[in-house]
Amino acid sequence: MLGAQLALNAVALGAAYALVAIGFVLVLNATTAVNFAHGESVVAGGFAAVALAMLVPAGSAIPGIILLPGVLVLTALLGLAIAALAYLPIRNRPPVSVFVTTIAFGIIVTNGLNAAFGAAPRTAPALLGTGTIEFLGVTASRQSLAIIATAALLIGALAFVLQRTQLGRQFRACAQDPEMARALGIRLTRITLLAFALGTAFAGAAGLLLAHQFFVTPSDGAGLILKAYIAVVIGGWGSLRGAALGAMLIAFFEVGVASVSSQPLAEGLLYVAVLLVLLVRPDGIFGEPQRLRA
């Protein structure tokens, strides 16, 4: 039974990491920009939920889903700010400049939250109430199931948008050849802003979900972006299913491998595994869907 329980927990944790990663992949697919403020965007989503929950009179526990629209709007605005301040002004300059402007943006968010909310861990309301569901001896918290469902939904929706819709084609066109896209009448700035707003709103949703399950502190961003980056690269730069698989791989090590060795050893083995994968597949597990390298 423990095996099944561990498997469920690993999938829930992997889904949480995948949620963090997909907003990053979306921005990557639409602009090639590497947004290192993405981890902080997740944290900002968590604190947006904490702040919105505080507006509600004390004692009345409201489910997170009521807060979700507010969190999405706030983090979408944050995404617009990242695009407008840290990406658009230097869009045509060396991509490494964007690494640093987004890192700087992350520093601002982290320390702004630390000053405004304090450093204590906080928790946000669960999406659809707390409690657990027992099934065949395996216990699943409602929040874990909500995370898995949301991750599946958003990954599916994003895959559909990127591959099947006009918007997805416009995203790809902008990423692969901005000049050609402009010549075809695509409004580059508008598409960029949209991608950042959407990607950061995804981060906000992830933040809301993670803040209940695992709490949120202002300094969490660095750890989250680290995991998202590993997931995205190891899966194949820009590949959506690659990022999801990469997230599951990390969770497998953190839950599965850790349960038979120890946490520090499991972490070390994860990095060894990453190096071995790159040795065998220098372009990630699924390879690159298109040329997106910055």
């Binding site: 561990l6 829930a12 695992f214 969770a251 953190e254 599965g256 349960s259 946490q263 520090p264």
Partner: peptide
């Protein structure tokens, strides 16, 4: 006696041990 990094999220592995 088990050590944990501060970033660890799921405690099931260590608690099951």
């Amino acid at each position: 006696a088990e050590g944990l990094d501060v970033s660890v999220k799921d405690m099931l592995p260590v608690l099951s041990k």
